[in-house]
């Protein structure tokens, strides 16, 4: 295991970019278990109230959901491309691609906002009188919907902020072809958030 030898100097002259990447992957492992807790509840409740879940999922807007999936998948493409561009020292292109990712993240959140407000205006939100009159399975479905898309949206928001910093770092030469781990790790995080959505989409919009 020769590749794991050697220590990083504290002064940071020799950067351990692989070590940084491992750290990021480990963080994503913890995220898998964090979202895992929610998916466990979803699957248990769905198994218990299959019929109610079918009914409630009919409320979801398939068009907006599909559109959001496409937006997020494309943003994953742009951040991946930006890393290749960075490594090829095409910094301008990298910045443009990162900016595109931020914009698509914002579009995702705006669409999400319209979905939520549409539901809230119908009186469907946790603890609302309308929701509490519905069946147990429907209460749980919408509870899960708000919690899971909400926490996912929070992750998107954090990602947008972090990528904005990366744009700044790339412009100021803090992130370069020789020092790419900040951007690479941001990319890993963004892709992970994308993967969570890849599972949320069928669970809430398609399984009707």
């Amino acid at each position: 295991m020769s590749y794991e030898r050697g220590a990083i100097e504290k002064s940071g002259e020799q950067r351990d970019q692989t070590g940084a990447k491992y750290g990021m992957w480990f963080f994503l492992f913890t995220e898998i278990l964090f979202f895992g807790g929610m998916f466990i509840l979803y699957s248990v409740f769905r198994a218990k109230y299959t019929q109610d879940f079918h009914l409630a999922a009919g409320e979801e807007n398939l068009l907006l959901g599909s559109l959001n999936t496409a937006v997020l998948l494309t943003s994953s493409l742009s951040i991946a491309l930006s890393i290749s561009a960075l490594k090829k020292e095409n910094y301008r292109l990298s910045v443009q691609l990162q900016t595109a990712t931020v914009l698509m993240g914002l579009i995702f959140l705006v669409i999400k906002y319209f979905e939520w407000t549409a539901k809230i205006s119908k009186g469907i939100y946790p603890d609302s009188p309308v929701l509490l009159k519905m069946s147990a399975g429907q209460i749980l479905f919408f509870g899960l919907y708000y919690v899971m898309t909400g926490l996912h949206g929070l992750h998107v928001l954090i990602g947008i902020v972090v990528i904005s910093f990366m744009i700044y770092f790339t412009k100021t030469g803090n992130v370069t072809s020789g020092n790419f781990s900040k951007l690479e790790n941001t990319g890993l995080y963004w892709h992970f958030v994308d993967i969570v959505w890849i599972y949320l989409f069928p669970l809430f919009y398609l399984i009707t």
């Binding site: 109230y49 946790p126 749980l140 509870g143």
Partner: peptide
Amino acid sequence: LGRVFGVGFFDPSRG
């Protein structure tokens, strides 16, 4: 979330 927003994943009266 249960305390603040009334999300009842562990509350039998809400399924």
